[in-house]
Design a protein around this nucleic acid. Structure first.
Length: 267
DNA sequence: GCATTACCCTGAAAGC
DNA sequence: TGCTTTCAGGGTAATG
């Protein structure tokens, strides 16, 4: 499931390959994407076809494809892929958008589960970028001190911090030795610093390893990431904790799997 | 403001 | 073995 490091890996791939490319045509499957909403095909066509790709940006888990006519926003959901392929390659099942480029290549959006989203215009209301300059101890502390919510729920809230998903939140809480159910306002002082550092560390490691592939994720060339081999708790229930040797536990919070070491992460 | 729940969807895995 | 059922996941929205 693409989170910040996976989206950033794709952004960097595309940034090497798309800028300067002209868009000649757009094909769509006609299927609706997230929440059964129809695609704004006319809008997407207007800002791409006949135009030229420019910069590739990212906001949280959103990928921004800039052209000289506007911006297409892609959220990969659970199973979305953005791929650059040679023209004429066999169309994979669940391909929903194909931009034909002037040099013969194609940019394709493939999404089996259709939890993703492709739209036009910059996304609004995103939280702070955890790898940006504004994410410091004071900012995180202010976010935590006013909230009685469980720390895990708060970290997953995209309107607070943009880009964290289930995998990297579980890993960051493990590194900072904080229980996922701990109330946010009880995380103070040196634990705030530890948490901020852990968030930055797990995201940077994820990018360095070109993303975590548990099932679906691949980069813009269809290659899997390597970060899954470095995880401490996520998906490791029943296995020994890498720090203390206790058994890693799985629990369900707000309908989401949570992985933790109950010995290292005390309430 | 926050928790809970349902929903969207497919394919892998588990169950029979 | 082959069929059926269950489950995973992020974001959104309705409800309490």
């Amino acid at each position: 499931m693409p989170e910040l490091p996976e989206v950033e890996t794709i952004r960097r791939d595309l940034a090497k390959r798309l800028p300067g490319a002209r868009v000649e045509a757009l094909w769509t499957s006609g299927f609706p994407l997230r929440m059964n909403r129809p695609l704004d095909v006319a809008g997407i066509r207007k800002v791409t076809v006949g135009g030229q790709f420019q910069a590739l940006d990212r906001m949280g888990k959103h990928l921004l494809l800039r052209t000289d006519r506007g911006t297409v926003v892609v959220h990969l959901g659970m199973s979305g892929h953005l791929l650059v392929v040679p023209g004429g390659e066999v169309r994979a099942p669940h391909t929903h958008l194909i931009w034909t480029l002037g040099d013969g290549r194609e940019l394709r959006y493939v999404d089996p589960r259709r939890f993703g989203m492709v739209s036009v215009g910059d996304p609004a209301g995103s939280g702070i970028e955890p790898l940006g300059p504004g994410f410091d101890d004071a900012r995180l502390a202010a976010m935590l001190e006013g909230s009685r919510r469980a720390i895990k729920a708060l970290l997953l809230d995209q309107s607070k911090i943009a880009g964290l998903g289930n995998i990297y939140v579980c890993e960051a809480l493990f590194l900072a030795q904080i229980h996922p159910s701990a109330q946010s306002l009880r995380v103070t002082g040196p634990r705030v610093t530890a948490l901020r550092q852990a968030i930055v560390d797990v995201l940077k490691a994820g990018i360095r390893n070109r993303g975590t592939t548990l099932r679906d994720y691949t980069d813009a060339s269809g290659r899997k990431g390597k970060n899954q081999y470095t995880l401490h708790v996520y998906g490791r229930q029943g296995e020994p904790c890498t720090r203390c040797g206790a058994v890693v536990k799985r629990q369900v919070d707000q309908g989401r799997s949570t992985f933790l070491c109950v010995r290292c992460q005390r309430r």
